[in-house]
């Protein structure tokens, strides 16, 4: 099978997976105890008013029809209106999704910038005390929950040292002419640096430990022995031969890490009052705002699916030995 056919097939699988996740969500919400409108319909409503609302939400249709409509709307990314603000869910998501992506993107990039050299360093110092300490250090940061390191970070850097703001994305009253102006402003990065570093402190252990393991495996391969036999210095063997080949699984894991980071946005955004879709989702679940909860969940799922898709493609692109079957 050719590359093009592979991509087409994977895109098709992507759509099918998306519809499957949407279906799961539909039945999950329907199976939940209580009426889907329980929080929307006030107690003071008359029977007739309640009936009119049920009708307007299509809740009097048979279940299979409701399901088909839901799938059709999910494909069009139409998730209805928010119960609280009556704004279209996609508008709320559109206002916030880039805030999430920029924060997640910068934290994953930071995690890689630190994690990959750190992992190579650990493999290079294999068997020595520095390696043991380094591995434990990586495991420590993987074990410390992000919301806790976030709290510690806010306490130390925002409240005690007064270096950065304690939360939110911009200073009160600050306005920006466009999203681009926002993301290139000093004010934005002043707010973003702490949550980005806190999140990166959690995620760097993935590339670090992957890089270490991958280096250790590559170092046993023939071409590394051969390079050593040719009399190339240890340092050059490491950098030119071992590290380059070891990078392969680490790079493909980048997309996987991005996918995890998307799921983690619900936590970091809550701690730092960051106006992204993760926090929007948490708040809408708390408020039983079902349309927003469903919409944000599906958008997060799309981002994870796209990340996995990118990992698949990158895998074949970076390693020509992979055949598309």
């Amino acid at each position: 099978m050719g590359k093009k056919e592979f991509v087409v097939r994977r895109v098709f699988q992507l759509v099918v997976l998306y519809l499957a996740i949407a279906s799961m969500l539909f039945f999950l919400f329907r199976a939940a105890p209580g009426s889907p409108l329980a929080t929307f319909i006030g107690t003071g409503f008359t029977q007739a008013q309640e009936e009119a609302i049920r009708e307007s939400f299509g809740l009097n249709d048979p279940l299979w029809l409701q399901y088909l409509k839901f799938l059709k709307n999910a494909l069009l990314f139409d998730f209805g209106l928010s119960y609280t603000t009556s704004k279209p869910v996609m508008q709320l998501v559109g206002e916030r999704v880039w805030n999430t992506l920029v924060l997640m993107g910068s934290s994953v990039v930071l995690a890689y910038l630190f994690g990959v050299p750190f992992g190579a360093y650990l493999a290079w110092n294999r068997g020595e005390l520095t390696e043991r300490v380094g591995v434990v250090f990586a495991l420590v940061s993987r074990s410390a929950p992000v919301f806790w390191t976030g709290i510690l970070g806010i306490w130390l850097f925002a409240l005690e040292l007064n270096l950065v703001p304690a939360g939110s994305m911009t200073s009160p009253g600050a306005t920006f002419s466009s999203k681009f102006a926002l993301y290139t402003s000093l004010d934005f990065w002043h707010h973003a640096i702490l949550p980005a570093v806190v999140q990166a402190f959690y995620y760097y252990s993935l590339p670090a430990l992957l890089m270490r393991n991958s280096m250790l495996e590559v170092m046993n391969e023939d071409f590394v022995d051969f390079a050593e036999l040719k009399g190339i210095s240890d340092r050059m063997v490491m950098l030119r031969h071992a590290a380059r080949n070891a990078l392969l699984p680490v790079v493909t894991a980048f997309a996987i890490a991005a996918g995890y980071a998307v799921g983690g946005s619900v936590i970091i955004e809550t701690v730092f009052a960051w106006p992204g879709i993760g926090r929007l989702m948490v708040n809408s679940v708390v408020a039983n705002n079902y349309p927003v909860a469903q919409g944000t969940f599906l958008i997060l799922a799309v981002l994870v699916l796209l990340a996995n898709f990118a990992a698949d493609l990158a895998y074949g692109y970076i390693d020509p030995r992979i055949t598309y079957e």
Partner: peptide, 10 residues
């Protein structure tokens, strides 16, 4: 394909 923490929340 399902985001882990958001799924548990829902």
């Amino acid at each position: 394909g399902i985001p882990f923490t958001p799924f548990v929340i829902v």
